[in-house]
Design a protein around this nucleic acid. Structure first.
Lengths: 170, 170
DNA sequence: CGGTATCCACATGGATACTG
DNA sequence: CAGTATCCATGTGGATACCG
């Protein structure tokens, strides 16, 4: 299995770490298919229209990173099932956020199927940024703060040294 | 500008549409840098350690897709500013969800800076999947349903987000 | 069924030099 | 400062053939 690229700098952000694994379009597509209930090599092959070698490579990669697990079925050893691990399932919010964005700006692509709440059968809401108390936050409600200052703020909330070093959201 | 690949099938899902634009690691990294307040070519160049031609290509791509806009500064025509459009800002939830996932599983990468609520200076909460009434939903609370079966239900959200809501998304 | 093994075209991406 | 223009090594990805 070939190396994809030089590792990104993962020093001070989790995004590069995530992209080390998912930073490639087929990985996302395979994940999406898995979320929709596909489990077998040939199912992915047919559904995605991906080349065999690439699919093989990406599945191995996902398994290697603990996002999917490989299991031989008891009745037929040749039949292999790929299933999402908990680590893989944890990617669902990110996938949905991307999907919703794509749907919003992709000129009316009506995504199907739709993810729903089993309790009432209604579609899930938009993936939003929220405060610790669940208030929905928009760009104007947000600022970047140094981790050190945030720690101080947690210990002493009423007069925290607000020093927004970087602010792109204004 | 070279073509990246054959277009994905965007028929019934917004994810491929999103990946058509963002499905490549450098695009995400550039966006992240933009969210952190970088605006100029050389800033991106230095911060990301990307090759000039690739950066040029990706910036053009992002501008082309309306995610960033290019503006010459009035005082010096040679100075160019890249700024996120609203379409670009709307990618923030997806970026943060990916970042949080990376941080959770990336072996203790303490992301910095931290995105905070301006109102109390505290870090934002985890990006979650929620029902239309804001209840947090886990994997067991979710099911895929055909769009046709869901279509009938138009509900009155008591906790409707302030921002333009994406509704009925899977 | 679930892969490997090849071959080939082309895109990515780094480095460097050059330009307005 | 913000690119463009090359060159070049490697990775991506499709197609096909083959294997246990």
């Amino acid at each position: 299995m070939g190396k994809l690229h030089e590792p990104l700098d993962c020093q001070n952000c989790g995004l590069p770490a995530a992209l080390e694994v998912m930073g490639e379009r087929w990985s996302f597509m395979i994940l999406r298919a898995a979320f929709n209930g596909l489990h077998h090599f040939e199912e992915f092959l047919g559904a995605l229209g991906i080349a065999r070698n690439i699919l093989s490579n990406r599945l191995a990669r996902l398994v290697e990173h603990g996002i999917m697990k490989r299991e031989a079925l008891p009745d037929d050893r040749r039949k292999i099932e790929y299933r999402l691990t908990e680590k893989g399932l944890d990617l669902l919010p990110a996938m949905l956020a991307l999907r919703q964005w794509g749907e919003k700006y992709g000129e009316g692509v009506p995504s199907n199927p739709v993810l729903c709440d089993v309790r009432d059968g209604l579609p899930i809401g938009a993936i939003n940024i929220r405060a610790h108390d669940s208030r929905v936050l928009g760009p104007k409600d947000l600022e970047w703060r140094d981790r050190a200052d945030v720690g101080a703020a947690i210990h002493n909330d009423d007069d925290a040294p607000v020093r927004p070093a970087l602010n792109a959201l204004g």
